[in-house]
């Protein structure tokens, strides 16, 4: 009985109608709820999925048809995709994006781990202050400091026109990653670490050989976040790399595609889908880690 009520309360239809209420209307209500819930769910899924369908259909239309309000392609122009991939620069943008996202992710994780570990497991003065500063810099819009940063990278380091001004800072810890990893590390009981310390392990050893294996899912999650962040970044490449098409990333190059390709909606949509595809593929393989990570940002902590 109790179990039935619980399920009902959580919104799941109970397997058996309770004896107290007459069975008929209860059953009808259940069916109506079922229909209602599923109608809503299907509507929502259509809202999420139909845009992809339309984009795809347009991407295989002819140039002329893409400028009409037709929904269904009359000729299936698969060649649009080859055309996009053969666009000068498209391959370079791919390489650049992979380099930015790959190195950026690696640097971020390696540099943020010890910081997060210290913030979670060391006791020291100013820990509260440090943590507050981490959270503050996490919330800081990147545009706030962009002018001096640009001046620094362009005038002092002579690195504008490359992606290095975006990659190098990632070797010095990323606030969001530090924060997330710290939240994970808090869940590790300190007894494990103390045991290792008694055995004479150094902190670095403990971090590498005990902690890292334990929080592998967390590392996967923050790595994915960082990878997507780099992959999607538009503002960074726009500021530092816009003057050099050889350093563009897909996200930035995609927009300029309009100019290079003189906005043919069909090619534009093909290019758009080609940029979306890898992210979505990665998601399907790493769905679990990703969802866990997102959950942790908001629920725990």
């Amino acid at each position: 009985m109790a179990q039935t009520v619980t399920a009902e309360a959580a919104g799941i239809a109970p397997p058996l109608a309770p004896a107290r209420t007459p069975p008929r209307p209860r059953r009808r209500k259940r069916v109506l709820t079922w229909i209602g819930v599923h109608t809503l769910a299907v509507t929502a899924v259509l809202f999420f999925i139909l845009p992809f369908v339309f984009l795809f259909l347009t991407s295989v239309m002819s140039n002329k048809q893409a400028l009409t309000s037709d929904l269904w392609p009359t000729s299936w122009e698969w060649g649009n995709y080859t055309k996009v991939m053969k666009t000068p620069g498209f391959g370079t943008w791919w390489r650049n994006t992979l380099m930015y996202a790959g190195l950026g992710t690696l640097f971020t994780v390696v540099s943020s781990l010890p910081v997060a570990y210290a913030l979670a497991k060391f006791r020291f003065r100013f820990r509260g202050v440090a943590l507050m500063l981490v959270i503050s810099s996490m919330m800081l819009p990147p545009q706030v400091i962009i002018i001096p940063m640009y001046i620094f990278w362009a005038k002092q380091m002579h690195l504008s026109g490359t992606l290095w001004p975006l990659i190098i800072p990632m070797a010095f810890g990323d606030a969001f990653t530090i924060f997330l990893l710290r939240q994970f590390l808090l869940t590790i009981p300190s007894e494990y670490l103390d045991a290792a310390r008694v055995d004479g392990c150094g902190e670095l050893r403990i971090l590498i050989s005990i902690v890292v294996p334990m929080i592998r899912p967390a590392i996967a999650a923050v790595a994915l976040f960082q990878f997507f962040y780099c992959w999607n970044d538009y503002f960074g490449p726009q500021v530092y790399a816009s003057e050099n098409p050889g350093a563009w990333t897909l996200s930035y190059g995609l927009e300029s595609f309009k100019g290079a390709h003189q906005v043919n909606w069909n090619l534009m949509m093909a290019a758009t889908l080609l940029v979306m595809a890898p992210v979505i593929l990665v998601f399907f393989f790493a769905q679990k880690a990703f969802i866990e990570g997102v959950t942790l940002t908001g629920v725990k902590g």
């Binding site: 999925i49 845009p51 996200s251 995609l254 889908l273 940029v275």
Partner: peptide
């Protein structure tokens, strides 16, 4: 349901925006 609803969040913002500009184009969208 959750996977499909989650999918659009992953679309790179530039790509998603260009896509919506096309979907919502007043004349031909």
């Amino acid at each position: 349901f959750r996977t499909l609803s989650y999918l659009p969040y992953l679309a790179p913002p530039v790509a998603a925006t260009i896509g919506f500009a096309f979907l919502l184009n007043p004349g031909t969208g």
